[in-house]
C-alpha cells in the first residue's frame, strides 16, 4: 500500500515535472508572440470595428468591403494564385528533389541552381522578368512566334497577367520546396527501403509504400506553409505590376491584385488603416479556415 502510493506520487511528480519543463521551455516564446504578434493583431481587429479617431462600434468597414467589387476580384485572384501555385510548386519541388536524389554526381550543383531563384533579390529579377514578358519585343513572345504559336500580352493583358505572376512565384518557390523535400527525404530511414526491396517491391511501389507516407509531415508542412504564403502574396505582384507600366499595384485592371495588395492600397495609399484592418480580418479568417481544413484532410500522423 505504502509502496504503491510512493510510486504513484513519483509518477505524478514525473508528469508534473515534465509539464513544468514544457511550460518553462515555452514561457519566453509565448510572451514574445503575445507582444509582437497577438496584441497588434487584436488591435487590428478592434480597429476594423471603429472609425479613425472614434471608439464607437461600427460595421461600416465590413459593409463597404463586401460591396466593393475590387475586393471580390482580389479575393478571387488570391484563390486562383493558391490553386495554380501551390500544387505546381510542390510537385515540381518534389520531382526535382527526387531526381537529384537519384543521381550520384553534381548533386550540390543541381541543388544550388534550382535554389538560386529563391535567393535572388526580387527588385532586380522582376525587371528581367518584365523584359522577358514584354509583349512586343520580349523573349517569350519571340519564342512563341518562332514556334508559330499565338503571342500573348503576358503581364500587360488581364487574361494572362495572373498566370504570368504565378509563373514567377512558382519559379522562385519550387527551389524552396525542393530544399524542404530534400531534408524530408534524408530523415527517412534507409532500412525501410531495404526491407521493401527484400519484399520484392518495385521502385514505383517503394515510392508509394515508403517514401510517400513518410514524407507526410513534410507534405503537410509545405502545403500549409505554401497556402498561407500564397494567400498573402504581395512582393512579387508589387514588383511585377507596380511602377511606370501599371499605374497601380495589382494591374492591369486589378487582374493581379491579391487581398494583401488590396489591403496595402487601402491602408498605405488611401491612408485608411481601419478599412485595411477589416480586409486583414477577412484574410485571417480565410487562412484559418483553409488551414484547419488542410490539417483535417492531409494530416495522418498528427492531430490538431
Amino acid at each position: 500500500m505504502n509502496n504503491n502510493r510512493k510510486t504513484l506520487d513519483q509518477m505524478m511528480t514525473l508528469r508534473t515535472r515534465r509539464m513544468l519543463i514544457a511550460y518553462a521551455f515555452l514561457f519566453i516564446p509565448v510572451l514574445f508572440y503575445l507582444g509582437v504578434r497577438i496584441v497588434p493583431a487584436i488591435q487590428a481587429l478592434s480597429m476594423s470595428f471603429t472609425h479613425e479617431g472614434s471608439s464607437v462600434f461600427t460595421l461600416d468597414h465590413y459593409k463597404m468591403l463586401l460591396q466593393d467589387e475590387v475586393f471580390w476580384i482580389s479575393v478571387k485572384n488570391t484563390i486562383l494564385y493558391v490553386v495554380i501555385v501551390v500544387p505546381l510548386q510542390m510537385l515540381l519541388g518534389l520531382l526535382i528533389a527526387l531526381g537529384i536524389e537519384r543521381v550520384n554526381r553534381f548533386k550540390w550543383f543541381y541543388r544550388i541552381v534550382f535554389f538560386l531563384p529563391y535567393m535572388t533579390s526580387i527588385v532586380a529579377i522582376s525587371w528581367v522578368w518584365r523584359l522577358i514578358y514584354e509583349p512586343n519585343t520580349g523573349l517569350l513572345n519571340k519564342v512563341l512566334d518562332w514556334l508559330n504559336l499565338p503571342v500573348q500580352g503576358w503581364l500587360t493583358h488581364p487574361d494572362t497577367a495572373l498566370i504570368s505572376v504565378s509563373i514567377v512565384i512558382i519559379w522562385q518557390m519550387m527551389g524552396f520546396c525542393m530544399l524542404i523535400f530534400t531534408a524530408g527525404l534524408q530523415v527517412i530511414p534507409r532500412q525501410l527501403y531495404e526491407a521493401a526491396e527484400i519484399d520484392g517491391a518495385g521502385r514505383w511501389k517503394r515510392f508509394w509504400m515508403v517514401t510517400f507516407p513518410l514524407l507526410n509531415p513534410t507534405i503537410v508542412f509545405l502545403a500549409i506553409i505554401g497556402v498561407i504564403q500564397t494567400l498573402q502574396t504581395f512582393t512579387q505582384i508589387a514588383n511585377l505590376t507596380g511602377g511606370a507600366t501599371g499605374g497601380g499595384l495589382g494591374g492591369p485592371l486589378h487582374s493581379t491584385s491579391s487581398v494583401v495588395v488590396y489591403m496595402y492600397n487601402q491602408g498605405f495609399r488611401d491612408y485608411n488603416l481601419h478599412f485595411a484592418a477589416a480586409s486583414t480580418v477577412f484574410l485571417f479568417i480565410l487562412i484559418l479556415i483553409v488551414t484547419l481544413i488542410q490539417f483535417r484532410v492531409l494530416n495522418k500522423s498528427y492531430k490538431l
Binding site: R18, M19, I21, A22, Y23, F25, L26, P29, V30, Y33, V36, R37, I38, V39, P40, A41, Q43, A44, I225, I228, Q232, F234, V260, M263, Y264, G267, F268, L273, A276, A277, T280, L283, F284, I287, L288, T291, L304
Partner: peptide, 29 residues
Amino acid sequence: KFRFFGARGIFILILSTMMIPTEMLVIPW
C-alpha cells in the same frame, strides 16, 4: 514531444500568427 495542458492551444496560437500579413503589422511594430 511533451504532453501538457494547452499544447494544442499554444500551437494554434503560434501558427495563427503566420496568418496576419506583415504589411498590417508594420505600423504597430
